[in-house]
């Protein structure tokens, strides 16, 4: 038995699906994701792969053009199933480098926090409203709206729009103004949590641990069968 993900698909008896990935004309097992189609064709997989199906790591970015369509759209290869006539190109990742530097620990004064948005991400106010980021996002996030809200100072509302962002950085690649929307989103979310999330039960328990009233008895009766 083959242990390859999606290996069972080939046994269904249905016709294989012809697609082209990165110039390789291959036959995908019916139902296979694009990543599964790639490995089932015997092609080597060493990069642009991570969680391999959960759609949560953002590694397997592809451009996909379906038969009869003019425009290619961005997608995640692990979440997209092969369709006859698809043309697919993996979008490689370049080494991570962050030009938008900030230090959360140095943001002691929350009155200055909103001003930091413009200081760290000055490009955001130059948004051309071209919609490229929205078109690029494989998760359907309203990226451009979030950038607009951030510029208006609505930090929490803007950050909330990035709630399920997987940091695939497709919006970063798409933005002609180098706004780096996904990282702007992370900045807003991290700032909000580090400055305003103070759970009372957590704080009380930490106080108890520090004053010694939560000692652990390593050899209590409950620590043995």
């Amino acid at each position: 038995m083959s242990l390859a993900p999606g290996a069972g698909l080939a046994d269904s008896g249905a016709m294989p699906i012809p697609i082209i990935i990165d110039g390789h004309a291959i036959e995908a097992p019916p139902g296979a994701s694009l990543i599964q189609a790639w490995i089932s064709a015997g092609l080597p997989l060493t990069e642009n792969v991570g969680c391999m199906g959960q759609g949560v790591c953002g590694a397997c970015r592809v451009l996909v053009r379906r038969e009869g369509e003019r425009i290619a759209t961005a997608a995640l290869a692990c979440e997209t199933r092969a369709e006859a006539g698809m043309q697919v190109a993996f979008i490689d990742h370049f080494p991570a480098r962050r030009p938008h530097a900030y230090d959360l620990a140095a943001m002691g004064d929350s009155w200055t926090a909103l001003g930091q948005v413009d200081a760290v991400f000055p490009e955001a106010k130059h948004c051309r409203h071209c919609g490229g980021c929205d078109a690029a996002c494989p998760k359907g996030i309203e990226v451009q709206k979030a950038v607009t809200l951030a510029v208006e100072g609505r930090a929490l509302a803007a950050g909330a729009l990035f709630d399920h962002c997987v940091m695939c950085n497709l919006c970063v690649a798409a933005c002609p103004e180098h706004i780096a929307p996904a990282h702007l989103g992370q900045f807003l979310r991290r700032m909000a949590n580090s400055l305003t999330l103070r759970p009372g039960d957590l704080i009380e328990r930490i106080r108890q641990i520090e004053d010694g009233s939560q000692a652990i008895d390593l050899d209590s009766p409950g620590a043995a069968p």
């Binding site: 959360l104 620990a105 992370q186 979310r189 991290r190 700032m191 909000a192 949590n193 580090s194 305003t196 999330l197 103070r198 759970p199 009372g200 039960d201 957590l202």
Partner: peptide, 21 residues
């Protein structure tokens, strides 16, 4: 983790300061 900027869900209707996780 919160200091690094991670969020956690609070109970329905609880405040961000003093509320319960």
């Amino acid at each position: 983790l919160i200091q690094q900027g991670m969020g956690f869900d609070l109970e329905e209707g609880e405040d961000r300061i003093g509320g319960h996780l």
